[in-house]
Amino acid sequence: MMKNFKAEIISNKEVNPDIFNLIFKAPELAAAAPGQFLEILCGADGVSGGPFLRRPFGVYNTDVKKGTAEILFKVLGQGTKNLSARKAGEILDIVGPLGSGFKIIDTPRPVIAGGGMGVAPLLLLAKILHEKKQKPIIFLGAKNKEELAAAEKFEKYGKVILTTDDGSAGEKCFLNIPLEKYLKENKNAVIYSCGPHPMLKCLAELGKKYKAAVQVSLEEKMACGLGVCRGCPVEVKNKDEKYKMVCKDGPVFPAEDVVW
């Protein structure tokens, strides 16, 4: 159930240049499902000195025993800049967990595909698939080695295949190249994905071609995060309505429902 709560920061580490791993106390998020997200106030007080609206962040990890949760983010604008300056002991104002996350399918061929900061909501998913004794194959792609910020963390949950645009880690290509090779040999895979829009569009096409069920976690400019303001539409096909809301109906959607 979603709540508005205050969370004490335990640590906020720059794990790679401009990429931060923020850990905070949040027993409220013990039941957060992979793919769900949080709306965090990133302004000084929500009114002045920062972005006015809350900013959405995927739940990167939870530790139910310790009652903690994590987010992973890259400094892109004023909101993430403010967040990167927050220190241990300070308090975050969070609404969550929000949205509808990944639907976990019982399959012998689970695939995780994360592009850039799209890895953030996938780590918790990898962990849960691992707990369910599934052995996901994990494709992680980024611009360069520095942006593959979470790669080692995935290694304990499955086989990891890396790609970078500049070849500084893994193969020098987009992740769809090795992923397509895998799909050619493994029919009926289930792909859980998050990343830039062109990447997800490409995965949707691969899914169609190789009969893989693709789930995509989407992003859109967002205000309330609750489904109330109707501010974050994604155009869908074959549904009663033209638009679904990323915050409430998603952020995870079956790729075949999305108008790419």
């Binding site: 009114v47 972005p51 006015f52 400019k221 303001c229 109707r230 501010g231 974050c232 638009y243």
Partner: peptide, 14 residues
């Protein structure tokens, strides 16, 4: 159906 996205954006203090 409403407008196409983006439907919301930040503004200074609003």
């Amino acid at each position: 159906a409403g407008n196409k996205p983006p439907r919301v954006a930040d503004a200074p203090a609003g």
